[in-house]
């Protein structure tokens, strides 16, 4: 365990070094992150201008969901996707062999290959939006609510990671993945809205199949004291199930690779 933690630190350091190799990229990246952050809030602001409450959410409450959306998008595009893209490249060029030759868990190596460090701007943005939203909501959350929200945040990140691993597993069969990544990013965009905004098919899709609700709405609900315990526990269980499924998909993909590639 300690070894993997050390390894993660080395990987992070290398990513920061890589990021700062191209200083202008680093700066432009940060500025772009701030731009997208504000741009993402515009539609919400427009909609809540018309009505004070939508599907049980006031504007400041919905802003809290947007804060989690910003944070999770930073996690997705800063910590999850860069590695994913790198693996696909590895598979295409055959350099995945070097990963498999290392005496460490291949899934770990593959998913820590690259981080976009300037995406930390998203986390700062999320803190600012979240802080403002909480200030407007007026009643400060209890310590237990904060703890549950943090736990659900970890669970949400784990689900994002699991989905990404399943996508990588698919890359062992389908080599062109750009479309799949684009599709997932477009779907993920829906996570900026509170889950209750959606009805019928979409609600089911975003609750169980691609659990965007778990990733952004549930932590915000926990903080607002709106989430009941059974739902929180089910969400945590669901996240673990996702991670387990991802592991199975990864193991199968690796087996396919080692028996099929040349």
């Amino acid at each position: 365990m300690a070894r993997y933690f050390r390894l993660l630190l080395v990987r992070l350091r290398v990513s920061v070094q890589l990021g700062s190799q191209y200083r202008s990229d680093f700066l432009v990246g940060g500025v772009m992150a701030l731009f997208w952050l504000s741009w993402n809030l515009v539609p919400m602001w427009v909609v809540w201008q018309k009505r004070p409450m939508i599907a049980g959410w006031s504007f400041p409450e919905a802003l809290l969901v947007a804060a989690w959306f910003t944070l999770m998008r930073g996690v997705l595009e800063g910590a999850v996707q860069p590695s994913l893209v790198a693996v696909v490249e590895h598979i295409r060029q055959g350099t995945l062999d070097f990963v498999l030759l290392k005496p460490a868990d291949a899934q770990f190596l593959v998913s820590t290959a690259k981080f976009e460090s300037w995406r930390a701007a998203d986390a700062i943005g999320a803190l600012v939006i979240g802080g403002y939203a909480l200030h407007r909501v007026a009643h400060p959350p209890a310590a237990s609510a904060i703890a549950v929200a943090l736990l659900l945040t970890l669970a949400g990140a784990a689900v994002l990671y699991a989905v990404a691993i399943v996508v990588v597993a698919a890359a062992f069969w389908v080599v062109r993945l750009d479309n799949l990544i684009y599709l997932f990013n477009s779907i993920f965009d829906a996570a900026r809205w509170p889950l209750t905004v959606f009805r019928g098919f979409w609600r089911i899709l975003f609750t169980f199949i691609i659990p965007l609700g778990l990733i952004t709405t549930y932590p915000a609900m926990a903080l607002l004291n709106k989430l009941d315990w059974p739902t929180a526990l089910r969400a945590l269980g669901g996240a673990m199930l996702f991670v387990a499924l991802a592991r199975v998909a990864w193991t199968r993909a690796l087996k396919h690779y080692t028996s099929a590639s040349s």
């Binding site: 070894r3 050390r6 390894l7 080395v10 990987r11 290398v14 070094q17 890589l18 190799q21 350099t95 070097f98 290392k102 005496p103 460490a104 190596l109």
Partner: peptide
């Protein structure tokens, strides 16, 4: 296996952590 944009020394450090 060397990291293209970084000096080889960084790949060495990474392998040291892996092994």
């Amino acid at each position: 296996q060397l990291l293209w944009d970084l000096p080889p020394a960084d790949t060495f450090t990474m392998n040291r952590a892996i092994y």
